[in-house]
Each structure stands twice: as C-alpha cells, then as structure tokens.
Design a protein around this nucleic acid. Structure first.
Lengths: 343, 343
DNA sequence: TTTAGCACTTTAATTGTATGAGTGCTAACT
DNA sequence: AGTTAGCACTCATACAATTAAAGTGCTAAA
C-alpha cells in the first residue's frame, strides 16, 4: 500500500518523535512540533487510517500513537534521511578505532565506540568460518611456551603453556613444523578434534607436550564464544527498562546465546541488516531490533557487529555510525591485506 | 562493649535471617525460626538494647531490625561460623580455575567463579607494581611482529604490530636484545615513558619500528585498566536493586574507577580484607561491602580479587569461597615459581 | 476535503480507609 | 531481677474511590 505525502510526513514524525520522547505521540504534538499545515483533526483522521493499515499502534484508546514494526520498517525503507555524524562522534571513532592489534582488537574497539555513541549493547560475532593460517610456538623460558595461532582473517590468538619438562629449541621447531603441516587451513572450531586425532597418530612422540598444548588451546578458543556482548548496563537508562523485570528479561535474552545466534544468521545477506521486532520469528525478540553490520574484506566474511536495542532506537544515527565504522574497517583491513599480499 | 550470650545469639540470628530474606527481622521471627527459649517480649527488650548500642537499625518504628555496619562488623569478627563449601561449588571451582594460561587468565577464571557462586560482581586488580621480566619479539610475517611482554608476577601480555617496512630476523634479534637490556625490571606502568626516552636517545636508529611498537604496547597496556569488573548484571536479581535508580547508581559507582581504587587500597593489610559500609570513608560506598582477597606468592603481591555487594551478603560463604580460591592460587602460583626457579 | 467542537475512554495522580506487622511500655508473674 | 503477657501505638502497604488530563473518534458545518 502506498501512502500519500501527508501520511508519510505523519508517520515519519511519529517515529522520530517517539524515538526521542519514548512517549506515545498525539495529533496535537505533530501539528505543533512538525509544522504540518493541517488541523489536529485532519491528522487524527490520517492517524486512524495509518493505524488501520498497521503502521501505527495505540497503547490504549486515550493515548497517542506508537510505531508498529511495520511502521518502523516503512520508515527505515522509505522515509528515513541519513544523518551526518557529529564531529564529536567522528573524532571519537577515529581516536578509538586505531587499528592497533589484530582483527579481534578491532572488533572490540568498534563495540566500545558503538555502545558509547548509541548507548546500546553491542554483540560481536567474529571469525565465522575462520581458518588457521599459521601456528607459531615461542619458548618463553625452559618450561613455558607461548602458542600463537594466526587465522586467515587476521585474528591472532595466543596462550601460555606451562610444561613439566624442559624442551629444547630443536624440539619446538620440529613440533612447529609438524603442526603447521597438519593444521594449515583447519577451521578454528575443529582445531581440537584434528589435534586430538594427530596426537593419537602421527605425532604421538610429542604427546607429552601436545596434550598440554591442546588443553590450553581448547581453553583459549572456548573463551571468546563467551565475551559476546559489551556494555549491557547501558540499557538501564532507557525508559523501556524502568521496570526492572524487563531489564532482567533482556539480559537473560542476551545471554541465551542461541536466540542471538540464529537471529543474527538472518541478517547475513547485506552489509547492513536490520531486523525489527517480530520480523525475526523469535518471540523473545519481538520488542527488540537488531542492526548488524557484516564486515568483509574483498574475499571473505570476517565477522559481524550488531547493535541490539528496543525497537525504539535512532535508526538513522545507528546506520550512519555503522557505515562509518564499516568504511574504517575497510581501510584498515585492506591495508593489512595489501601488506600481507605485497610481502 | 561486650554482649551477653543471648544478645549474641539474637544479633547473629538477625544478620543471618536478613542475609537470606532481605526483610527486616522481627522478634517473633527470631523466636520461631532460631529456637530461642525466650518469649518475643524478651527478645524485643534485647533488640532495643542492641539498637541503642548501635548494632541494629530500624527502618521505621513498626518494622523489624536490620543489622547496622557495626552489627555486621561484630558478626564478622565474633559470631560468624565459617561455612564449608558445597561439593557442587568445590567441583565448579576446581573445573574452572584450571591454571591454564597466565596469571591474568587465572584472575579471570576466579572472577567468573566468584560471580557465579556468590552472584555478585567481582572486581579485579591485577599486577600492582608489576615489573617487566622479559620482552620477546616474534616475526609473524615480514611486516607483522608479535610483541610479548612477560612480567615478574607471571602475567603475559602481547600485541600485534603491523609495520610499513619489512624487517629481517637480524634486526628483530638486535632490537630484542637492546630492549631487554634497557627495560628489564621496569614497572609496567612506566614502560611507556622509558620507551619514549630510549627511542629518543640510545635506540633512535630503530625508531621506524619502535614508534609503532610503542603505540601498540601503550594500547595493550591501557586495555586492562578498563576491564575491571565482571558480571555487573548479577545485581539485577537482588531486592536491593528493585528500584532501578539504585541499580544505576551502583553501576555508575563501579565505573567511577577512583572510588573503587582508593577503597581497595585500604583492604591491603591482610590476605582477606572486609570493608563494610562507611568503614570506607567514601559516601558512595556507604551501603556496600567490599570483600577482597590479596593474592601473593612467597615474595610479592600479585593482585587482588574483590567482591563488591550491598552490605547484605553471605559473609561466611564469601570468605569460604575466597579462602578456597586463595589456596588454589597458592598451589598454582608456587608450582609456577618452582618451575621457573628450578630451570 | 478539511475543521471545529464535543462526548467518550482511559491513565495517572491523589486521597481516604482498612489491615497487619512489629514495636515499646507497663504491670504482673516467677 | 529477670521474664512475660497484654495492649496501645506507629507506620507501611494495599486497595478503592475520586479527579484531572490527554487524546481520541465522530458529527456537522465550512
């Protein structure tokens, strides 16, 4: 259904006012604040029609209107004007996303920026389908090794292994070569299984070191599946969560990994994906919106940065922020690729 | 002032009941639940005396009593019986605090355990006064270096540095030696300053690499001052925070680093320090308790693990948990030391 | 097609009332 | 002297009744 200009203006005013005020928006407010050249009665008529066609909702009969999922969707697809970021925000992003460290640091920096600018929790899903590029073992001291795993997407993981016996440089070199030979290109999630199988077969002469190494790698890899979301506390300031039960539900929902995971899967097609309310089929998400940015280099999908929020969020600013972050990522990641490629 | 046996029993009952119920405890409750062989009127008389001498407080005249800071303190010092941890908890601790990784991993594991068992946020203060033991530089590829910093307390930090130019193994070795020579024993906090000064003087021939390295180290070291507290959300379940404003205040207080820092300084004398309410002179902390465990090896102070909570917390269980964790730390850290010493 | 006007509905805030928990005190009891 | 029963008193909490304000939908007129 196509909306006429006035209805578009009304819908967009309702969305934008509600985003700021968090209160249902009445006809009078729209006339006064958004200088429509009509009387409140006219606006009321249109609002009724907008409600009947599903763009607006009314919490109760004597309240103003609130955008429905369909309303937000129409706004995002057709009405929203892309905001420019403020210089303050741009500077903050530029200073925080520095490109120091590996890809995972980069993602953490982004999460921090987003939750600070948008005041919403940010969920990171790095290294989908990441493959092992290279493994290095460094002797820190006679009995302490540092294992460094480099993935093809540029993430570096490392862990300390404490041994019971001393090992020589030669053994370490030999082991490193053997591991690289066996493990190059293995998906990180499967590293464990493959390691277990090779320690049982080809490399069982090294098993006295390898079992320890496997344990540590397992521990290291298990860690990041858990440090998923940052700045969960930020939601306490939102009026949506003035009832603490709602806040608890939200937090629980966030920690129910499956819900987030499957919903994020859906936002995969485009660089920027927006899932509003029940567009995901997950009941627990019906009041929330997920806005995800897929980070990819020329050839591969590196990960995803997702803002999760009540449906009431400044879509325009969020999109602007994510796009700007994306451009920064592109610059940094491509530069990295060049470097590696050019070597 | 010394309390007679009955008053001790009453005080301890009030504390223990309040810890569980979070409701002011009345005289009848005590008679019924804690089988005192007296009538409620007698208990009332004693409670009045306990209130007059400052051990108990009354939210309002028709409510039961609540322990005051002085009451909690007396309970902790004189009345509290040390609980045994449940097998479930012990198993959970044993399985989570594995000793994999470096000292910092160890602390993170402890934080996780504590917030899970005690349902309170946990604040970590690792590496007070940590000195650099050793720096290693590993060539990951032609233009990518891995910098590894080992501290004397056993913490390992590392960071990736992306260079614009290729460097050879020889240069890396030379630089490593020079850095170790200059930096051994430097406090981590001062690493930056010292690095800046040596790049300006002795090692300015390496400045094309060193500036990048300094930036990355700076970034890496700045990170951990911020990942201070874990599981802040856990407080949402406490009745103390049924008013969301209180929850916000608590969260803000936690992120006001100075408050925590200075208060933690005080809990330094003993292995186990308990600061209740206004025993710290910090107004924002007047309703909260900090229970800290100082982690030390035979010769040095490694860090501190602190549980932060409303004053109403199961002191006995907390102490038992922290002590058990301390014994595990001692085992793991001493084993590490032996290893290093024995090499 | 638009608008003024008005009746109507519902929420939020305010006030009043009843209930109950728990006290402090007094007088009696052991 | 220590303990207890009994009772008046206080305050918090819950609930109902009342009111005011916001915003609607509808009708009739412009």
């Amino acid at each position: 259904m196509e909306l006429d200009d006035r209805k578009k203006k009304i819908l967009s005013s309702v969305v934008e006012d509600y985003i700021i005020s968090a209160e249902p928006v009445g006809s009078k407010t729209i006339v006064d604040k958004y200088n429509l050249e009509y009387s409140s009665a006219t606006i009321r008529n249109d609002m009724k029609i907008l409600e009947e066609s599903g763009y607006l909702e009314q919490p109760h009969v004597s309240a103003g209107r609130v955008p429905s999922t369909k309303g937000y969707r129409y706004y995002v697809d057709n009405l929203m004007k892309e905001k420019k970021l403020s210089m303050v925000d741009i500077n903050y992003i530029d200073n925080t996303i520095t490109g120091f460290g590996d890809t995972e640091n980069l993602f953490e920096q982004a999460a921090k920026v987003i939750s600070k600018i948008l005041l919403r929790p940010t969920v990171l899903t790095v290294k989908t389908q990441d493959l092992l590029e290279n493994i290095k073992i460094v002797r820190i001291s006679d009995k302490i090794l540092l294992i460094v795993l480099m993935s093809q997407s540029g993430t570096v993981k490392d862990c300390i292994v404490k041994l019971d016996l001393e090992v020589s440089d030669e053994i370490v070199d030999e082991l490193t070569n053997a591991l690289n030979h066996n493990l190059h290109g293995t998906p990180l999630e499967k590293l464990n299984i493959v390691l277990n199988s090779i320690v049982a077969n080809e490399l069982n002469s090294f098993s006295f070191i390898l079992t320890k190494i496997i344990d540590s790698i397992k521990y290291e890899l298990s860690k990041d599946s858990k440090k998923l979301s940052s700045n969960v506390e930020s939601i306490l300031d939102l009026p949506e969560f003035s009832d603490i039960e709602k806040a608890k539900n939200f937090v629980n929902m966030l920690s129910t990994k499956e819900i987030i995971d499957t919903s994020l899967e859906k936002a995969k097609e485009n660089e920027l994906g927006i899932i509003i309310g029940n567009e995901s089929n997950e009941v627990m998400l019906k009041d929330y919106t997920i806005i995800s940015l897929n980070i990819e280099t020329s050839d591969k999908h590196v990960g995803k940065i997702s803002v999760i929020s009540p449906k009431r969020i400044d879509y325009s600013k969020t999109v602007a922020t994510l796009k700007y972050i994306n451009s920064k990522f592109k610059k940094i990641l491509n530069k990295d690729n060049e470097k590696e490629g050019g070597s």
